[in-house]
Computed example of a mutant assay.
Amino acid sequence: MDENLTGYLTQLLPEQENWVLELEKQAKEDHVPIMDPVGIHFLMQVIKLRKPASILEIGAAIGYSALRMIQANPAATVLTIERDEQRYKQALYNIEKQQKQDKIDVIFGDALEKAEDIVAKGPFDLLFIDAAKGQYQRFFELYSQAISKGGLIITDNVLFKGYVADPDKVHPRYAKLGKKIRKYNDWLMQNPDYTTSIVPIGDGVAISIKE
């Protein structure tokens, strides 16, 4: 999204609680990728509208998005997985600090390896994919079977800094990843079992409804 538009939308957002600002600061200082303020606000709005009772998240990071999703729907529960041990421990700490450990269950491990066990814990009303971008399609294929009919699958970063729209942009790492996400977007939009819309907000958010 255009930086001026992003700045404008960010200024319109309501004032956040101190714990939210602290987690955003922590993520910035530690270089942990989390959803930007406009993107997370949009995700929370979707959750407020749909009110999913059970949420599955691939990529806990420091627990920021899981906590914000519970903030959007306090009646929900979140099961989230993180493969980085340091971030996993940070997520546990942040969730316990907000006294949400009874609402958010964090699993330590690789989502590609833990799929069978996690899918067995379903069904879930919403799947949020925000982990290794090169594995998006694999995550979708593995975990979509755990989503209830009419449920949502939301994927973050599907416009990836503009590299999906302009694959000729020069960057040794981002260009290659951008092509992978572009391929994922094409596959997603053509998937007959889902109706998908890609919203150009934040770094791009795909919303897929299971038919």
Rank of each mutant, 00 (worst) to 15 (best):
Q90I: 04
N157M: 06
L112C: 10
G59M: 08
R68F: 01
I181Q: 01
K51I: 03
Q90N: 10
F160Q: 02
D102Q: 13
T6C: 07
T155R: 08
I81K: 03
I129H: 02
V32D: 05
L126V: 08
I107Q: 11
L126W: 03
V164P: 00
F140Y: 11
I81S: 00
T77Q: 14
G122N: 07
E96G: 09
S54G: 08
K169L: 13
S54W: 06
M44V: 05
R83L: 07
L177E: 12
K133C: 06
K183F: 11
G178L: 10
D203L: 03
P37H: 09
R68L: 08
I62C: 03
G7H: 07
S65I: 06
D193G: 12
L43E: 01
I95L: 03
V32A: 08
P74H: 09
E22G: 03
I129Q: 01
L21C: 11
Q99T: 12
A131C: 05
G178V: 10
L56G: 01
G39Q: 04
I129C: 00
L12T: 10
N94C: 07
V199Y: 10
D166T: 14
L126K: 05
V164D: 01
Y8H: 12
P123N: 12
N94Q: 05
P172K: 15
D117F: 12
V170P: 00
V199E: 01
H171Q: 11
K133Y: 08
I58L: 14
D110S: 12
K100N: 06
D36R: 11
N191I: 04
D186L: 14
M189I: 13
A175L: 09
I58A: 05
D102W: 06
Q190M: 11
P200T: 08
I104K: 04
D84F: 09
Y8W: 13
Q190R: 13
L56E: 00
N4D: 14
G59W: 08
D203Y: 07
K121L: 09
N157A: 01
I198L: 06
V20D: 04
L188P: 04
I118R: 02
L5C: 11
K51D: 02
L9D: 01
V170I: 15
E17Q: 15
K48E: 12
A60G: 05
I55H: 06
F128Q: 11
S208P: 02
K176N: 13
I70Y: 00
A61T: 04
I207K: 02
K89R: 13
D102C: 07
E15S: 15
L13G: 06
D36T: 11
K103G: 02
M189G: 01
L112Q: 10
N185M: 07
H31R: 14
E17N: 15
F139V: 10
G109H: 05
D110Y: 09
Y163F: 15
Y64F: 14
D84Q: 08
V38C: 02
